[in-house]
Design a protein around this nucleic acid. Structure first.
Length: 580
DNA sequence: TTAGGGTTAG
């Protein structure tokens, strides 16, 4: 009977078609006497994209005299995919109370999926115990769904525990755990698990490599990324467009634009909008702004309509190159493009673009006049620009907003404190520091890492723990001496504390990226290889100046990946043209 | 036999 419904369902494009089919099913008695095609119909109705069909499905369900489990499941599934996934949980609970249909593994599966989308960990926890009570816990598919909910809602420990306890593991649950770790800001752990998976002779598939590559991108470890890419090519996984996109992204985030471009240009599979967006963003963050904008124009010629992300990537390109007028123009073009609506990230980029070029009032006006609620990042961006231009008044305004919004991010306080420090307003510095102490705000330490012959060396600011400590500090002295001959003067505004000038210069000298570059100069003798450094925060102005001079004096290319972009230092100048 | 894992973003 179900087979006879299927072809009819395929023809239902609107709610009125659906209603016509329902009338037919009622008159032929299918609705009353054949639960299986009825459930099929309900499922179609609940998951159809026709306007109003989901509500209609829920309504039909309420009018069925004795619904079966599959009727119930169909509606839960639809609700779980909707804009209000929590409704699925409500519907599930109502059904449990009605006692007319008994839950099966599918019921729990759909409801858990809804929890994952709603990031509802408490609800997932409850359903977890019900899964145990109903006797479904041995189901590997349900276990994987549970694991996924926990990981997605930030409870990686729960996810890991579940994963460790699974008596039978298949590729999918490895994938769920690896992606969970990668997306949950634990890229190191994700890669460790990926290695373990391969040691245990599980065969990674396209979804596994997506997670692993995303971890590589976050860490900036191109060596591991390359290995995975070789595996991908070997296994023919590069016929998957999403895999190619992530490879491009990985190379880009590791600072290898040319390799990213090669992958983009030689894809076996069809490029999609995401592919273009990824490539444009790679070019933008690597300082190849003109090329990024060229690609943005080209995509339209190849019949790809730019979406939100395309515009954002193009705006980023303008931002990273300080192309203010182009950015403003592009933003206006976007507001006229009816197919896209600017979101908070576009406004964020505009604030950054205007702010960094010193147009602080215009940046302020953007925040003041946006049609959506400003978030902390907008004010933090403005605060950062105030720091660059030493605008205390505007900085205080932004800081007040941040406090009002309940932000207690260390960066906010540090920025304000730095602004006061640069003006020698030590009393105000003290007040900010006291507030930090009272609010128990801790400063995230700056750190950098550098890969030398496959070994990652990590340095924190003022690090004295490295084995080659003395050698590194001697090298820094040498560097400072040599670049001073080229006119370097320490920019002590970047030091927080109220200490003497000489001490300040010293504190600056031992910023983690300087330690890393010194170490690189010592250990990486092949001068044609650039020195690549990864940093967790944004690079400070003084380090930026030092890197430029080092690239000139030592004739060495230096590539620094900071929190938001790449800086490519060559022969005394940086790819960011000092906009960052 | 309808269920689990998935790409770009200030």
């Amino acid at each position: 009977m179900a087979a006879t419904v299927e072809p009819l369902l395929q023809k239902c494009a609107t709610l009125s078609h659906i209603k016509q089919l329902q009338a037919h099913l009622i008159t032929t008695g299918v609705f009353q006497f054949h639960p299986s095609p009825r459930s099929k119909f309900l499922e179609f109705c609940a998951t159809s994209s026709a306007a109003g069909s989901l509500l209609y499905a829920a309504d039909i369900f309420r009018h069925i005299a004795s619904p079966v489990t599959n009727d119930w499941n169909a509606v839960i599934r639809g609700l779980a995919q909707s804009h209000q996934p929590t409704d699925a949980v409500t519907f599930y609970r109502q059904g449990l109370r009605m006692l007319t249909c008994k839950p099966d593994a599918l019921t729990c599966s759909f409801t858990l999926k809804a929890c994952a989308r709603a990031l509802a960990c408490n609800e997932a926890n409850q359903i977890h115990s019900q899964v145990v009570r109903f006797g479904f816990i041995a189901d590997i598919l349900l276990q994987t769904t549970l694991l996924d909910v926990y990981a997605k809602s930030g409870y990686l420990d729960n996810a890991h525990k579940l994963f460790d306890e699974m008596s039978k593991k298949d590729v999918t649950c490895w994938n769920a755990m690896i992606s969970g770790l990668a997306q949950g800001n634990q890229p190191n752990e994700a890669l460790q698990l990926f290695t373990r998976m391969r040691d245990l002779r599980f065969k990674p598939n396209e979804i596994t490599v997506l997670g692993a590559l995303s971890a590589c991108a976050q860490l900036g470890v191109v060596r591991e990324g390359e290995n995975i890419y070789s595996y991908i090519k070997n296994q023919n996984l590069d016929t998957n467009e999403q895999v190619c996109n992530v490879v491009i992204d990985m190379f880009g985030k590791c600072g290898y634009v040319t390799k990213a471009y090669q992958v983009f240009n030689s894809m076996k599979c069809t490029r999609t909008l995401v592919t273009w967006n990824t490539m444009i963003m790679v070019l933008a963050t690597n300082g190849e702004s003109l090329e990024a904008l060229k690609l943005f124009d080209q995509m339209s010629k190849e019949r790809f309509r730019p979406d939100n992300v395309s515009y954002l990537a193009a705006l980023c390109a303008c931002n990273h190159a300080g192309m203010v007028e182009n950015g403003v123009e592009l933003f206006e073009k976007m507001t006229k493009d009816v197919s896209v609506v600017p979101n908070i990230k576009h406004y964020g980029t505009m604030v950054d673009l205007l702010g960094r070029s010193g147009r602080l009032h215009e940046a302020y006006n953007v925040i003041d006049s946006i049609p959506i609620k400003p978030d902390v990042i907008l004010w933090q961006t403005l605060l950062g620009a105030c720091k660059t231009y030493g605008n205390v008044e505007m900085a205080e305004k932004a800081s007040r907003k941040l406090v009002e919004m309940g932000s207690s991010s260390d960066g906010d306080f540090v920025l304000l404190s730095n602004i006061y420090a640069a003006q020698r307003r030590w009393k105000d510095v003290g007040i900010v520091r006291d507030t930090m102490r009272n609010k128990e705000v801790k400063k995230v330490p700056g750190f950098s890492y550098i890969d030398v012959d496959g070994v990652i060396h990590k340095f924190v600011n003022g690090d004295r723990s490295h084995l080659n400590l003395e050698e590194i500090y001697r090298k820094i002295e040498e560097i400072m001496g040599r670049i001073m001959e080229y006119g370097y003067v320490a920019d002590t505004g970047y030091v927080l504390h109220d200490i003497g000038l000489e001490e300040k210069e010293n504190a600056l000298s031992y910023h983690s990226e300087k330690l890393a570059v010194a170490f690189g100069l010592i250990k990486m003798s092949n001068e044609s290889n650039p020195i690549r450094i990864n940093k967790n925060l944004r690079i400070c102005g003084d380090c930026h100046e030092v890197m430029k001079l080092v690239s000139k004096v030592y004739k060495r290319e230096i590539i620094v990946r900071d929190r938001t972009r790449f800086h490519n230092f060559k022969n005394g100048s940086c790819s960011c043209k000092d906009y960052w």
